[in-house]
């Protein structure tokens, strides 16, 4: 009886020591959930969620401060992925907060006065320009966040929807009507 108790105590001490050691040795810095949530977000850094960028929004979700339906660029699928990841219910977008068609910013270079305000607003440094020099958008890097539109004093920035071309075209979901076969259908000739 006593020896059995000692064995149990010994095992518990040993396991406790192992657990304690690994808690120090394998400690994960930061919250890994934030990284996972951040990976799902579209990284437009648009701030439409009310947070200054995707990472802060991810942190807020991880802390349980923010809803998962605040990211219009991520689309419905983004919400579904977040719901999957966090094990919560899917939540539709609020009214008028749905996703928009993809677009990139365009600067009307005749109107631009070179004030650099949009340069400072761009979260991904996708605008090239200098003081009193004409600015232009690096379209390939533009995330379409629209943050540059508000600061422009001469309203020379507009959003141009991306046209569909052969490279971006996708095969449509096959849609066909399921119709009952005619009763006396002739044998279909094989080709």
């Amino acid at each position: 009886m006593i020896s059995a108790l000692w064995v149990m105590v010994g095992i518990s001490l040993l396991l406790g020591a192992v657990l304690g050691y690994s808690a120090i040795k394998f400690k994960v810095e930061g919250n890994p959930l934030v990284e996972k949530i951040d990976a799902v977000l579209p990284q437009t850094q648009c701030g439409q969620c009310g947070y200054p960028g995707c990472k802060p929004y991810a942190e807020a979700i991880a802390k349980g401060e923010a809803d998962i339906n605040r990211c219009p660029p991520g689309g419905e699928e983004g919400i579904r992925k977040l719901a999957d990841l966090l094990g919560v219910e899917y939540k539709p977008f609020g009214e008028g907060a749905g996703p928009k068609a993809k677009a990139v910013a365009f600067i009307d270079e005749n109107t631009c006065i070179g004030c650099t305000l949009c340069l400072q607003a761009c979260p991904v440094d996708a605008i090239v320009g200098a003081a009193k020099q004409m600015h232009t958008i690096v379209a390939s890097e533009c995330t379409g966040c629209e943050l540059c539109i508000a600061p422009c004093p001469v309203d020379c920035i507009s959003m141009v929807p991306l046209p569909e071309n052969i490279q971006t075209w996708k095969w449509p979901y096959p849609v066909y009507a399921l119709t009952p076969a005619p009763l006396n259908q002739p044998e279909a000739e094989s080709v």
Partner: peptide, 22 residues
């Protein structure tokens, strides 16, 4: 399915680049 997966792959890459730039 293939073109959907390709597009997703491209979007992920674009997001990765945007994250790095930000």
């Amino acid at each position: 399915a293939k073109s959907e997966i390709w597009q997703r792959e491209q979007e992920l890459q674009a997001a990765e680049i945007a994250r790095e730039r930000h």
